[in-house]
C-alpha cells in the first residue's frame, strides 16, 4: 500500500530518533493530542542546545504528560503523582552537574504537586519545568482539575466547573520563578525557543503549554475535533511579552495571553547555600 502514497519517501527512521526510545513508539497519546508536538519541540530544542546529553535528566509525574520521560532516550524518572519536582530537587542537589527537566501535566504539577511547585519556585531551585496544560485529567478520562476554566464541563463537573482555575504563569512568577513563558502547542517555533531559553536559565524556569485534549476536554466542551481545538487555542492567543502574568487568566472560550512573561536573574538555592556555608 505504501507505494501508492504519492510523492512521499517511506522511511524507517526519523532525524530525532537518537533522542527517542524508538522501541517504545508509537506513544500512548491520542491522535491530535498536543503532547506529541510539545515533545517534538522539546527534542528539537535539545538538538539545538549544546548540552552533554548524558547529563540531561527528565523527571515526570503521573498522567498523560507523565509518560514523556519514558519516550526520551535520556535518563528518565517516572515518579509518583505530583512528586516529580521534589524528586528532581534531590537529583539536582545530589549531583549539581545534572541538567534536570521536569515534564508533567497541569493536574500533576498544580493540584497534587502544587505545594512542591511553589516551594521549588520559592527556593529558586535550578530546574526547568515544562507544564503541559490541557485543562483536565486526561489519563483518568477527563475530570475537572486545578486549571479547568470556570464553567467548563468535564466528567466531574457535568454542570459546569464552579471553581476558579490557577493561572499557572502568575503562580510561578508570584512564588519566585526566574523564567516564565506560555505558548500553545501550535506555537512550535516560539515554544522551542522558550525551551532553549528556559534550559539555559540558571534557576527555576517554567514553560506552560496550552495543549488540546480532544478526547475528553474538547469533547465535553464541544470544541470540535483535535484540529479545531488546536486552531481555537492558537486563534484565541495574543502574544504579549513581558505582560504582567496576573493579567494572563484563562477563561472558557476567552483569549489566551502567551509570551515570555518573566526573565530575570537571582541566586539559586545552591548559590545561596554555598555562600552561607562559606
Amino acid at each position: 500500500m505504501a507505494e501508492e502514497l504519492t510523492n512521499l519517501l517511506i522511511s524507517e527512521h526519523h532525524p530525532m530518533d537518537s533522542l527517542l526510545r524508538q522501541d517504545r513508539l508509537p506513544h500512548i497519546w491520542c491522535s491530535g493530542c498536543g503532547l506529541g508536538t510539545v515533545l517534538t519541540c522539546f527534542v528539537s530544542a535539545l538538538q539545538k542546545l549544546e548540552l552533554d546529553l548524558n547529563k540531561v535528566v527528565i523527571v515526570s509525574g503521573i498522567g498523560c504528560t507523565g509518560r514523556a520521560a519514558g519516550y526520551l532516550n535520556l535518563d528518565g524518572f517516572h515518579t509518583t503523582h505530583g512528586r516529580a519536582i521534589p524528586f528532581a530537587t534531590g537529583l539536582k542537589l545530589g549531583n549539581p552537574e545534572l541538567k534536570v527537566v521536569v515534564i508533567s501535566g497541569d493536574g500533576d504539577l498544580m493540584a497534587i504537586g502544587g505545594n512542591h511547585f511553589i516551594h521549588a519556585a520559592r527556593r529558586n531551585m535550578d530546574l526547568t519545568v515544562l507544564c503541559v496544560n490541557n485543562f483536565n485529567y486526561g489519563m483518568t478520562s477527563g475530570q475537572v482539575g486545578p486549571t479547568t476554566p470556570t464553567d467548563a464541563r468535564t466528567s466531574t463537573s457535568p454542570y459546569g466547573n464552579a471553581e476558579h482555575p490557577f493561572n499557572v504563569p502568575y503562580l510561578a512568577a508570584a512564588t519566585g520563578a526566574t523564567y516564565v513563558a506560555r505558548w500553545t502547542a501550535l506555537h512550535v517555533r516560539r515554544l522551542e525557543r522558550s525551551l532553549i531559553e528556559a534550559m539555559n536559565k540558571r534557576g527555576f524556569s517554567l514553560v506552560e503549554v496550552i495543549s488540546p485534549c480532544p478526547t475528553y476536554y474538547g469533547r465535553w466542551n464541544k470544541m470540535g475535533d483535535a484540529l479545531e481545538q488546536m486552531k481555537q487555542y492558537h486563534d484565541h492567543s495574543i502574544i504579549r511579552h513581558r505582560t504582567d502574568p496576573a493579567e494572563a487568566d484563562i477563561s472558557l472560550g476567552g483569549e489566551i495571553i502567551v509570551g515570555r512573561f518573566v526573565d530575570e536573574d537571582k541566586p539559586t538555592f545552591c548559590d545561596l547555600q554555598r555562600e552561607a556555608v562559606q
Binding site: 522511511s11 526519523h14 532525524p15 530525532m16 530518533d17 527517542l20 513508539l25 508509537p26 506513544h27 497519546w29 491530535g32 493530542c33 498536543g34 503532547l35 506529541g36 508536538t37 515533545l39 517534538t40 519541540c41 528539537s44 501550535l186 512550535v188 517555533r189 522551542e192
Partner: peptide, 9 residues
Amino acid sequence: MLCPEFAIY
C-alpha cells in the same frame, strides 16, 4: 515540528 508522532520530516 508539528507532527506529534515523529512520523514526518
